[in-house]
Amino acid sequence: MSTRVLTLSRKIVLFFRKPKVEKTLKVAGAVLKWVFFVFIIFLLYLPIFIIALQSFNNSQLMYDFTTFTFKWYGMIFQERSLSQSIINSLVIAVTATIISTVLGTVFAIGIHSLTKKKRQKMVLLNQVPILNADIVTGISLMLVFKLLMYIFPDIFGFTTMLLAHIFFCLPYVVLSILPKLSELDENLYDAALDLYCKPTTGILKVIIPSISSGIFTGMLMAFTMSIDDFVISYFNTGQGFDNVSIWIYASIGRQMSPAVYAYNTAFSFLMILVLVIISVKGSLKKRKNLLKFKQNKI
């Protein structure tokens, strides 16, 4: 009996060691791996497909697809409360992104210049808004702004929401620039100053160009975080200053105007388009430079 089991198991092992079988197994593993990958990416995108489907649905009902239509896209700016919240979201996101990118670059250079111990402490402080739960960040800021209300009674609304967005966007900008700064050759900045550059010119002409990819990443992160934020905006708004997330939250459970699906689909599509254009431009530039380099060599 036991010898039988032994020979059988040996046969099984030998079977899997056959080159042909080994190869098939490897291929099957690779296929399985990519099936898993595609499936998960599909799941991540499924809600977006559903939103797109709803945006083309002639019926207002969420569960009933009647006929195909583009009419909701025309309705985006007909619905006043929705269009106002879209404008608010965009204004806040763009302003917060610009301000936090500029300030974040300056602060990142400052943090990089500190001694190691101080730098680590600053990085830790910088992480607070990233790691903190949105609800705690939102309430913390609200408490401070409520204090400020004694001096500026009308502060709640645009101002508080903008300040709050700058608060949580800044750390992302700083964190994306710091690694680029540690790759920077500090002698370049020294050389610039030796050649009678003022520190500001040195920063603008030497440091900023070498960390531009980090600045771009930070900008993208800041915009992404700002445009999608709900919780922090929710606690730091007032006087009816709603962004899209707050508008959606208020409409949950009620009949939501399908125009919001149209807006969301159009916005995602536009962002993807911008990204594609930027990456195509970038790769074209690279190819051009490479060609130039080759020609010079010849």
Binding site: Y45, L46, P47, I48, I51, Q54, S245, V260, F267, L275
Partner: peptide
């Protein structure tokens, strides 16, 4: 993996709620 984040997260969850309801689109 980042692109889905440009779609409003509340709306995405609303869509998931739609799929997981008795009558879904």
């Amino acid at each position: 993996t980042i692109i889905p984040m440009w779609s409003n997260s509340l709306l995405r969850n609303n869509a998931i709620a739609n799929i997981l309801s008795e009558r879904s689109i």
